[in-house]
Amino acid sequence: MDSHAAPLRKARDSIPAEAGVGLRFRHHREVLESHPAAAWFEVHTENYLGGGSAPAHLDAIRHDYPVSLHGTGLSLGSAEGLDPAHVVRVQKLVERIEPGLISEHLSFSVAGGSYLADLLPLPMTEEALAIVCRNVTQVQDHLKRRILVENPSTYLQFRHSTIPEWEFLAEVARRTSCGILCDVNNIYVSACNHGWRASAYLAALPPGAVGEIHLAGHAVRRLDRGRLLRIDDHGSRVAPDVWALYAEALARFGPVPTLIEWDTDVPPMAMLLEEAAHASVLIEEAKNGTCRALAA
């Protein structure tokens, strides 16, 4: 064996149960040049499906960090089924990057063959449940890997929904063996918008299925007559109430890889690392709590 072989990628490895940062284009150069102390990075799959500098940068970053691929384009809830060409493009990126985790959303983005550029809400019906499970299974069969499915933030509900969203998501995980990406900010936003109890949502998710947590900031829009609508814009620090809900999530799910997301007015990397450091403190507390529980 050649002992001087080039170092292997630091991580063919899985994503650690630590706080990572959502990586956006403006930070590529900084990450490559100054190697900030992030535990791992997550990128949006659809930003790296072409050629040129973006995937080349990601190759280089992947050499030094574990990377998770977070998709917004598979449209797992589309009644018309998956776009096979898109699945193949995702598969090629997965083969190239060897991500520690692959995730998508409980929503739809494609209707009538067009991509509608948003994560649109699904009716919580038996029909939609069967369609989501069919699509998730097809993706997992194609990638030959488990994916995580994320709970969305929503601004409307459908009259004919019959299943609470938390039960729907848990059932997708049960039927397809996919994991759950628990977006704590999304739970908070949707719970406020629809009058759900956020803690009850967390309590309904099967702990063994939760493979990742997302944290982000949201905006509060004031409507007339004093009404409020919370918008999941990923444009600020994580709200205090969401940190509190995150602590509840860690107590229930144990230490889970946690991501700081920021997409609107992306701040300097230092601020993202500050938010990640805050999450790390809570993860450490959860780890100690787990040790105490095991010792007891």
């Binding site: 009644a79 209707a111 067009s114 649109l120 019906t125 939609a128 509900q157």
Partner: peptide
């Protein structure tokens, strides 16, 4: 689901809410 997704598409693209509004809480 197919009908509902077509109706939401119409609302987004052509601002025609007639198909989707009756189904929204």
């Amino acid at each position: 689901l197919l009908e509902l997704q077509g109706a939401l598409r119409a609302s987004l693209v052509t601002h025609d809410d007639r198909g989707i509004s009756p189904h929204v809480v």
